[in-house]
Design a protein around this nucleic acid. Structure first.
Length: 115
RNA sequence: ACAGCGGGGCGGCCUGUCGCCCGCUUCGGCGGGAGGAAAGUCCGGGCAACACAGAGCACCAUACCGGCUAACGGCCGGCAGGCAGUAAUGUUUGGUCCCUGGAACAGCGACGAUUGGCGUCCUUCAGCGCAGGAGAGGCAUGCAAGUGAACCGCCCUGCGUGGACGAUGAAACGGCUACACUAUGGGUUGCAAUCCCGAGUAAACCGGCGUUUGAGGGUGGCUCGCCCGAGCCGGAGGGUAGGGAGCGUAAGAACGGCGCAGUAAUGUGUCCGCCAAGAUUAAUGACAGGCACGCAGACCCUGUCUGCGCACAGAACCCGGCUUAUAGCCCCGCUGCGUUC
RNA sequence: GGAGAGAUGGGUGAGUGGCUUAAACCAACAGUUUGCUAAACUGUCGUACUCGUAAGGGUACCGGGGGUUCGAAUCCCCCUUUCUCCG
């Protein structure tokens, strides 16, 4: 099913510090993807954010996070049960439409599957 | 009609597919899910902790008159002055005292000042100052004749110093303001408050002070008072980064009608209706289609088609205000100088 | 979420109602010095508009916009923006 529940979200201070200190990263415009493998929990967990320094208004940050989450929800089947930790963060200064973001997420998922 | 002034309101709707958060569940499902500003955090409260917060001083805020409110620096009504506008109306100021303080650049001045400085004109006797000119004297130099850039006084000319007018300057229909005074209000910190559960480490080490002759803390800007009180402070180091309550209310400083009181803000009722998001890397969305609305264009012109647009913005303990952002539209009242019919 | 602090020439940074000569330091530029350079010393040094042939002068600007005042970098209000603190 194309769901996106609480267990699929990456949270906790230690998890985030570990991911950003030791994880690998690459860029698929307009997203930067940080990832790490070999975790005990088979559920893949995802973090999504847009920086406040690029978007002052909370409405725009929320909109981008919703679009990225939606794109991930519809394209996650191949990596759902691998137990990875993935972080998507938005990098562009302008708000891109959903189609652009979905293409970026699809590309990122393909790239993660190949590595 | 048009233009303007004031007040109030709305802030899209429907369908399909795939999803998110919360509650209930007979596990099939069912119900609920952003705003007028949720924003800024500028005021005022509730609530919580410190003693269910006490006294004095200091400090801060407010300041025409009256009313409303849980409270306010908010709101309503009224008074007087200034400014803008034809007008509707908007905007701004408003306690007391100074005989007892100050009043910038120099002096004066509410014990009532008007000067100096600036501009123009008049006068120019004497003195003084500045600038320029002229030669002879002093003086310098040289044995002397002579020479003289500079120095001293004399002489001449011009300007200023004097007078009048004007403008400037906050300036006589009586300027401005600190401190002070008077009245009223304010204890401090804020839900990361505060309380509980769980996990883990170091009840160890070094130095200082102290145990009823009281260290230290509650306690904040100070003093007092009150309470707690056997540990406290510094150094060097170690551990944690989770969860729950507060926090989503079965009731309220609720909200919407209607009636009544009041010019109004607002208050009130054996009346009627209505019952509400609760996340914590943080839900309320994505895509597609249709309708409505606005603008522009075209045409077979009282309607259809095409294109574009549809704002500002996202709850985080909860209320009452203020301020700021806001596409497009609706309703009510008022005004019109030299708008139009 | 809550509580605070700041923004002044190219940089750092004083000034807290009275022509600020917009102090002072650094950087920059010119000169002196040196065979050359550094150091040292002396001087100049923001932007815009405007008057003047020129030397030089005037006005405005202290993040932006309003207000109070005779007068605002300074006091009050709003906006923009940067930073700090909390369990």
């Amino acid at each position: 099913m194309n769901t996106f529940r609480k267990t699929e979200r990456l949270c906790g201070r230690n998890n985030l510090q570990t991911l950003y200190r030791e994880g690998h990263k690459f860029v698929v415009w307009p997203l930067r993807v940080t990832w790490s493998k070999n975790h005990s929990d088979p559920q893949t967990a995802v973090l999504v954010w847009a920086p406040k320094s690029l978007f002052k208004r909370a409405v725009k940050r929320n909109l981008l996070k919703r679009r990225i989450r939606e794109a991930y929800r519809l394209n996650k089947q191949t990596i759902e049960d691998k137990g990875w930790h993935i972080a998507f963060n938005y990098m562009d200064k302008t708000v891109q439409p959903y189609a652009v973001i979905e293409r970026a997420v699809q590309k990122a998922v393909r790239k993660l599957t190949q590595t």
